[in-house]
Every structure is written in structure tokens, then in C-alpha cells.
Simulated assay, not measured.
Amino acid sequence: MQSIHRRLFSLFRLVVPGLVALTAFAGAAAWAQSDYPTKPVRLVVPYPPGGFTDILGRLVAERLTPILGQPVVVDNKGGGGSTIGTSIVAQAPGDGHTILLVALEFAVNESLIPGRLTYDVRKNFTPVIRAAYSPMVLVVHPSVKANSAQEFFALAKSQPGKITYASGGSGTGSHLAMEMLKTRLGVDIVHVPYKGNGPATTDLIGGQVQSMFLQYAVAKPHIDGGKLRVLATPGGKRSAAMPGVPTIAETAAAGFDVNPWFGFVVHSATPPAIVSRLNAAIAQVLKQPDVEKRLLAVGADPTVTSPKEFADFIDAEIVRWAEVVKTSGGEGGIAQFFVRPDPSETATGPPASTARASSARAVPPSGSRRRGRPSG
């Protein structure tokens, strides 16, 4: 009996210190997560200033700061169809102090340029929340002789290679939408990619390019001011913010539906407790009446999801766009228009030489041509 007692006592001496250490470690980890954030939070927006992502990112950062108790700083890292900024967050520590604002391209790039990405959307990131939908509109310079999408594409068909369209960069939603329509309708409209919607919009207003799919939030003041003409929206149904604007599905291509979405993700190593904290904090921001009012005023539709709901949504989007790329002919179809980032684009942004709007054009991909009046 005494032998058994001695063995039990020896086992107790071996096990208890380990349990105490494990409990202490778990407690320390829980304390660290409950104390989050311990320093300023970096919100990477993988697009240049001037688009809806910048509007959304700065609005959320401003309202998150008092909720989290630490400054939330927006860091625009545009270029490469959002891949440059996304790569930066994929390499950042998984401690919740670096957040990434993502859009449609986050899911689309998985199929368009799978061998060129330095990250894996599913493996390297944890979804936090889907924040909003923001409809695009097809807009043209007032000099274009078309008052509807049907008239615009008829004009493009009658003048192959003469009409140009701008995008915020190869691989962006505006690029994808027009390339899908070009394939669907059999028209030759020349792509002029830019390093962001800001410089693209400037050249569109100046007449250097003739058309573009642009977020309504960015296009609205120029439409109201008569500098741009709106023809249609590519969403599956009319937007509540612009009920008088028809859809492309109604006027030019039945069943066409491209509705840009936006959300937030973090590195996949981020502890679940921090992911939950960020989800609750961003949801709190989006539910603030004045925030909702500001987003609705620019045509955006705020949404609030759980991390799992957003993860499931991204998975479904990856599958959806993979099918689009496949049916478009894969590398010989839409995918051929999505290229490697312009070598002049770096993680710190475009070089100083791109300060002028006309110089902010990205190197056109194979199959794209640059037309229109030189901007000087």
C-alpha cells in the first residue's frame, strides 16, 4: 500500500507543476487578448486614395479609434490589382494590429492569377466582417454620343477599337465587369488601366478616356455636376440610391450581375478572441446612425456579418468567379487581361513621377491599347 502511495505522490509531483505552468500560460494569453490592442492599429487599404475603399477605410478607422482605445491609422498600399497591400498583411504578425480592407478582387484573384499570388486567401487570412456593398455605375464623358448602355455598346460595335475605358487597375472590379461584357457582347473597347480610381476618374473627366465602371460613391458628384453621364449599373437589380438608373441586365445583357462588396480580414494567426473583438467593434461602427446615413448617401449598403458568415461568403465568391474565368476561356479568355503588377509599383506606392494624373496609368496588359488624347 505504501508503495502505491509513493508512486502516486511521485506522479503528483511530476504532473502538478506542468498543469500550473499550462494554466499560467493560458491565463497570460487570455490576458494579452483581453488587453488588445496594446499599440496603434494599422488598417491597410490596398488601393490608392480616391475610391470607395478609401472612403470606407477612413470612416471606419475614425470611428474605431475611440472604441478600441488606440489610434487606427489608414495606410494606402495600392498597386497590382490590390495584391501589393494584401501581400503586406499576409506577412504581418498575426496579433490583430494589422487589418486589411478587402473587396471583390480578393476572391477573384484566386482564379485569375493563382500562380502569381504570394499568399493564399483561405490559408493566410481570417475574415472578420463584410461591411458593405457599393454599386458601380457605367459612366461616360459627355462627348460620347450615347444615353444608354444599349446605345453605348452599339456605338462601340460600330467603331471597333476606337472607344476606350478606364479602370483602377488590371484585376479590379471595374476591369472585370467591362471585360465580361466585352466577351459577352463581342465588342472591342480598349482598356486603359490606371493605378487607382482617382487618376482614372481625373482623366475620364478630362476626356483622355471615354468610359468607365466607377463606384457610385465616387461618380455621384461628377454626375451631379454634369462632368460625367451615367448610363447603367452592373448590379443584378436597381440600386435604392439611384432607382432611375437601369441595370445592364435590363438594357444590354440579360442576367448580368456584378455587385462589388467590401469587408475586413486579418492574418490567419490572429487569436479568435481578437477576431471576435474586431467583429464586434466594426459592427458597432457600421450600426451608428450617422455612419449608416453617410454610406447610404453615397449609394453604399452597410452590412454586418459574423466572421463565419463572411468566410462562407468569400468561399462562395471564389467558386463563383472561378466558374466565370473557366467559362470565359481561362488563360485565353478574361484571365489574359489580368497581368503581373507594374514593376514601377512597389509596396511604398507609385513613384513620384506618377504624380500627374495622366502619368498614373499602369503598363497596359497584352491585348490592351492606349488611345485618346495625350494628356501632356
Rank of each mutant, 00 (worst) to 15 (best):
M1R: 05
M1N: 02
S3M: 03
I4C: 04
R7V: 01
S10V: 14
L11I: 12
L22S: 08
A30R: 15
A32G: 08
Q33D: 14
D35I: 03
R42Y: 00
V44T: 13
V45K: 10
Y47W: 14
Y47R: 15
P48F: 13
G51P: 10
V60I: 09
L68F: 00
Q70W: 00
V73P: 02
G78P: 00
I84Y: 02
A90S: 12
G94D: 07
L100E: 14
V108E: 12
N109C: 04
E110C: 03
L112F: 03
P114G: 06
R122Y: 03
S134P: 01
M136D: 15
M136V: 06
V139Q: 09
P142C: 10
P142K: 11
P142E: 05
A154S: 08
A154E: 13
T164V: 05
T164P: 12
S167M: 05
H175V: 04
K182A: 14
T183A: 05
D188W: 03
D188M: 09
I189F: 12
V190C: 15
V192S: 11
V192W: 01
G196M: 13
N197Q: 11
G198H: 10
G198D: 14
T202H: 10
G207R: 09
L214H: 01
K220A: 05
V230D: 01
G236H: 06
A241E: 02
A254L: 03
V258G: 07
F262N: 08
G263R: 06
F264K: 04
V266I: 02
T270F: 07
A273P: 03
V275Q: 08
A280R: 01
A283V: 01
Q284V: 00
P289N: 00
P289K: 04
K293E: 02
K293Q: 05
G299I: 04
T303W: 06
V304D: 15
P307Q: 08
K308T: 12
E309M: 04
T327D: 07
G330Q: 11
E331Q: 14
I334H: 00
I334A: 07
Q336E: 04
R340P: 01
S344T: 13
S344H: 11
P350K: 09
A355W: 06
S358D: 14
V363I: 14
P364L: 04
P364C: 06
